[in-house]
Nucleic acid binder design. Structure first.
Lengths: 141, 141
DNA sequence: ATGGACCCTGGAGCCACTACAGAGTCAACG
DNA sequence: CGTTGACTCTGTAGTGGCTCCAGGGTCCAT
């Protein structure tokens, strides 16, 4: 419940969003430009705080800038149907699940190559498995 | 067992690495420059194929260009100790595991917000949980 | 000789920031 | 009222790891 407008530094502290990033969001039209002081300082109000927190939360959830733009547009129209939002979340969830699956495979491969046990590169399982996937104890390239 | 040198297109087909990417790797000094034909075409040999497969495999495992550079330097010295490689894999594994943990939390949050069940944005759980994390059925911003 | 597939260079663009230089503003303190 | 020091401004360039493009040149089979 801030009553007075605050500077970009205050907005940054209250949201955890970098000052440079806030200016960047304004430049790309993601955050509406605030009024300015006589000297040209940006003066933010509570609505900017809400808006930026929405953005921040979206980014934390891994949504792209474009997706957040779409979600913000939706959020501004309370009586619009929300299938759009539902679809976006579903798509993003698919993506995240795919990424987890990929990384899990990766993790297993990395675990398998760990502890190369040889003492020099010539016997190294790591170098070997990079040289010829699935095999160890190969010659170096 | 290619006996004749081949063009960049051949190298690309045999490794699955984009032509532009191959040239990029050469430019940043990751792939040694091949000889050239009279007309200036790059002429690759088997050693380039091995080298690029090593790079490709490293990238597929998620290693950074810099890490791959270090691994390649190691791979060239068969009698060097391989602790370096071991350490790099361990570090990378940590990173991958952290990323999986992060994405798993994300996935759970996304699953929780799915099926917004309201029909308009004003009741939408998705928009709500972006507006105020952890809560649904909020006013829009 | 010609056509079409291939290749060359240099530069710009992508995403989502982040860093920096050089200048100006604000508010508190003396 | 002046000074100090924290804060802010604009504009530009850089990050990683590519990817794409324009405008030209090369290669080889026919």
């Amino acid at each position: 419940m801030t009553l007075q407008p605050f500077n970009i530094g205050g907005l940054s502290r209250q949201t955890g969003v970098n000052i440079e990033t806030i200016r960047y969001y304004e430049k790309i039209g993601l955050l509406p430009p605030p009024t300015r002081s006589q000297g040209g300082f940006r003066q933010y109000e509570d609505r900017h705080l809400q808006w930026l927190r929405f953005i921040r939360r979206g980014r934390d959830l891994g949504f792209s800038i474009d997706s957040i733009r779409a979600l913000l547009t939706l959020a501004e129209r309370p009586d619009a149907p929300c299938e759009g939002a539902d679809r976006m979340v579903a798509l993003h969830l698919d993506e995240v699940e795919r990424k987890i699956a990929d990384l899990t495979l990766l993790r297993d491969e990395l675990r398998a190559m760990k502890n190369c046990c040889g003492q020099v590169v010539a016997q190294c399982q790591i170098i070997g498995s990079l040289t010829a996937p699935g095999a160890a104890q190969q010659d170096t390239i």
